[in-house]
Amino acid sequence: MRRSDLGEFEEVVLLAVAALSPKAYSVVIAEELERETGNSVSTGAVHAALQRLEQKGYVSSFLGEATAERGGRRKRLFTVSALGGRILQDVRAVRNRLWERIDSHLLLDWQ
């Protein structure tokens, strides 16, 4: 399985979808990421990332309810697919393994 096709921003968005499930859509994801990272995140960028993730099959989407703020337009809600979930776990496992190999003295230095 190729993991390299998951970009950093895509990974964060995918995680956010998982975290916000089942009410994950571009606006809340963008807001959540802004809150978490402190950087401004546009819905356009999130939207594009979601499109790519969907193309790769990591998320699936359906149209949700319409609200007044949206001018009566429906939102597209995203959920992490089984494939997406596996990928997230793989990525995490790789990172965990690497983290565990870091010398504890070094970790202390960083604190």
Binding site: Y25, V27, A30, T43, L63, E69, R70, G71, R73, R74
Partner: peptide, 14 residues
């Protein structure tokens, strides 16, 4: 169009 415009409006409101 529907989702994009909806997103924009909602974000603006927020």
């Amino acid at each position: 169009r529907e989702e994009v415009l909806g997103d924009l409006y909602e974000r603006y409101a927020l």
